[in-house]
């Protein structure tokens, strides 16, 4: 049984060309998928389609075998969490208030978050290494700290599928590795599935599946060993000087200046 499957998705913004074209993908429970591609290749559009924030103009998305659009938003939110590229809030919410909002799909409509929700939020902050920020106003944090907090909110949601849009773009090397360890750990213990956009090719070898997009279309898909090859990457990024080399568990990717 697939947790999520998408078939032949098309999406175009108003008066624009197709940003996503005939894209299909599947995410079985407990798998880690990464989406790579050049800037503007449709990665974020794809993940927003999967999160239900955009409606595909053609194609279908199934969550647990039911069309995504037919899910009640509140019930869907118990299964799927989304981490955007960046979040800015107009009001000085504290980090804890923000992470607690991730518990919304699990608390009934006219109740406040209880002790259990508090613990889940605290635990999520600890997992992302952001527990020390709990009482700070979110808008006073740096870009990297914000990413850790937004990830914590998504984890507090206890999803089965986590959709991440470049979650590590502002993180230092240490925190990038920590992020990946947290995700791998949740896959092992909770059967979490992950679909993650990244430009950070170093860690892609840790994923089960790599999907490469170019101009909105899937150009390559498969295991890291299938996709992380000189020829494939040169085609994906349109750069004839890219090299990829496997060193132990890691993949080193570089391009000539």
């Amino acid at each position: 049984m697939m947790l999520l499957s998408a078939q032949n998705l098309d999406y175009a913004y108003a008066a624009g060309p197709l940003a996503v074209r005939r894209v299909s993908l599947t995410a079985p429970p407990g798998t880690m998928t990464t989406v790579i591609g050049a800037n503007g290749s449709g990665k974020s559009t794809l993940i927003r389609l999967l999160a239900g924030l955009l409606k595909p103009q053609a194609g279908t998305i199934l969550l647990d075998g039911t069309r995504l659009a037919d899910w009640q938003p509140r019930l869907r939110a118990r299964h799927v969490a989304y981490v955007p590229q960046s979040t800015a809030t107009a009001f000085p919410f504290t980090v804890m208030e923000l992470v607690l909002s991730g518990r919304t799909p699990h608390t009934s409509r006219f109740r406040f978050e209880n002790q259990h929700d508090q613990q889940q939020a605290q635990h999520a902050l600890e997992m992302t290494g952001a527990a020390h920020l709990a009482q700070r106003p979110f808008i006073s944090l740096s870009g990297g700290e914000r990413q850790m907090v937004i990830l914590a909110r998504a984890l507090a949601q206890e999803p089965r599928l986590l959709l991440l849009d470049e979650p590590s773009s502002s993180l230092d090397l240490n925190h990038r590795a920590a992020l990946l360890r947290t995700l791998l750990n949740l896959r092992r213990t909770k059967q979490l599935s992950v679909i993650m956009i990244t430009h950070d090719l170093q860690f892609t070898a840790a994923f089960d599946q790599v999907i490469a997009l170019r101009c909105g279309e899937v150009t390559a898909t498969g295991t890291p060993d299938d996709v992380l090859r000189d020829q494939v990457l040169r085609d994906v990024y349109g750069d004839p000087h890219i090299h990829a080399q496997r060193i132990g568990d890691q993949t080193l990717v570089w391009t000539d200046l």
Binding site: A77, V80, P84, S101, P105, Q157
Partner: peptide, 23 residues
């Protein structure tokens, strides 16, 4: 008042509210 929780999520961010189950 009955909408206040949903409005609270909207005050944070529109996409966030949508993915947390707000119509």
């Amino acid at each position: 008042l009955a909408l206040s929780r949903q409005l609270n999520l909207l005050a944070i961010d529109e996409d966030t509210a949508a993915t947390l189950g707000v119509n």
